[in-house]
Design a protein around this nucleic acid. Structure first.
Lengths: 221, 221
DNA sequence: GTGGCACAAATTGGATCCATTAACAACCGA
DNA sequence: TCGGTTGTTAATGGATCCAATTTGTGCCAC
């Protein structure tokens, strides 16, 4: 599961989901233009649902639409990504606290299973998927639509730069992520909101600091 | 100024702006259905740009779209509004800190002018506009699009319940708002991020607590 | 009198067609 | 040879038309 937008008719949502998946997995990189006709032909349907899908993605920040010039995946500068991470640092602990109390044994087992798969050693694209699944699993108890869609937007908007960072640095410092995940899981199991919030904040903040230390990620080539 | 969405062609944006203004000023209350044909006829144009405008508003959380059933302004329950305010408490101090350093004498004068107009005594609808202008004026130095659009979304989504609260309780405790605004302005003028963040957090948190103490605001009649 | 079923009206979703605008290229002039 | 201009092309924006789904209504049976 990545994201889904059920708030629309079949075609628009289906096309938006497909485009979102393509953008998130890197098939459509920043800077690439999205021609309505190409998408309509590739995914089936006419240009109309494509236009609606592009509006939805634009509202999520995944594409930029300029009047009479079309849609393209936007480049983000280091400052924007840093701010997006600072937003994550403040919103995700809130989602976690709202979620924690409702996480039962089944959910905890699922979280642990995901973390075990991460520790078994995975490549970059697998890690990106599993890391996302791990954190989203810790938020499943949060039923607030606004908060969760905001969190999802922040993950989506920064996904490309997270991948670029991982591809560049390699898995050398994977143990740090695992240690942070383990501490986070332990605090959740203890049902300790303060510690859980603290570990999560530290986890995101450390990632932000590592990201801004690698400006080569943002080179446009 | 309320909000504007320049990221689209003329008609879609124009219609979205008009609908947004109508929803925010209460002309279109929660629960009301939005028929595409009516909107197209009322605002000019065909149904196509109306549909795109509704998608944009749906992404902002201002309307809800159900497949084959149309769009309507959603009701929010007390829990949702409380979470939206908790999100404000965390995001707006961030926007303020990013903005503060770039606020010059001209901006400070504008902020003070708005606050003076609030203190001169205004009715409910004027207060809603001026209070919004006041806070947005303190954020003008924040150039981050993602952060500001998130802040705007939070204000928009809670606007109706803020008005309901003000209409219900009356201006009896207006002096609290003025005191908080004055303290906030003073901290900004001192260029003290810690104090500014603290006063802003307190301001939003107090409002949240007052809101949740009045569940009659959420009655659906 | 009430519940269910079927039909009809209304509304949304999708496709095709036309207008408008921006990008691109060729051409003319200096 | 370079710059400006103009015409052509391609892509987006908008309008109208048709299909599919939902909802309301009326009728019939029980």
């Amino acid at each position: 599961m990545m994201t889904e937008s059920p708030g629309s008719s079949a075609a628009s949502s289906r096309i938006a989901d497909a485009l979102r998946a393509d953008i998130l997995d890197g098939s459509i990189p920043p800077g690439q233009r999205l021609r309505q006709e190409d998408i309509a032909e590739r995914l089936g349907g006419s240009r109309l649902p494509v236009r609606e899908a592009l509006r939805m993605l634009a509202a999520e920040g995944l594409v930029q639409i300029e009047p009479n010039k079309g849609a393209r995946v936007p480049f983000l500068d280091p400052g924007e990504v840093e701010t997006l991470y600072r937003m994550r640092e403040r919103l995700e602990p809130l989602a976690l606290v709202e979620s924690m109390a409702k996480l039962g044994p089944a959910e905890m087992a699922e979280i642990e299973a995901i973390q075990r798969r991460i520790e078994e050693g995975v490549d970059v694209s697998e890690f990106l998927v599993l890391d996302r699944e791990f954190h989203m699993a810790t938020y499943t108890g949060c039923s607030d639509e606004h908060l969760m869609s905001s969190v999802m937007r922040l993950w989506n908007a920064t996904q490309h730069y997270r991948r670029a960072f991982m591809s560049f640095t390699g898995p050398g410092r994977a143990w740090i992520v695992n240690a942070e995940h383990r501490l986070l899981m332990e605090a959740i199991e203890r049902q300790d909101p303060d510690d859980a919030e603290l570990y999560l904040l530290g986890h995101i903040r450390r990632t932000r600091k590592e990201l801004v230390r690698h400006p080569e990620i943002f080179s446009t080539d």
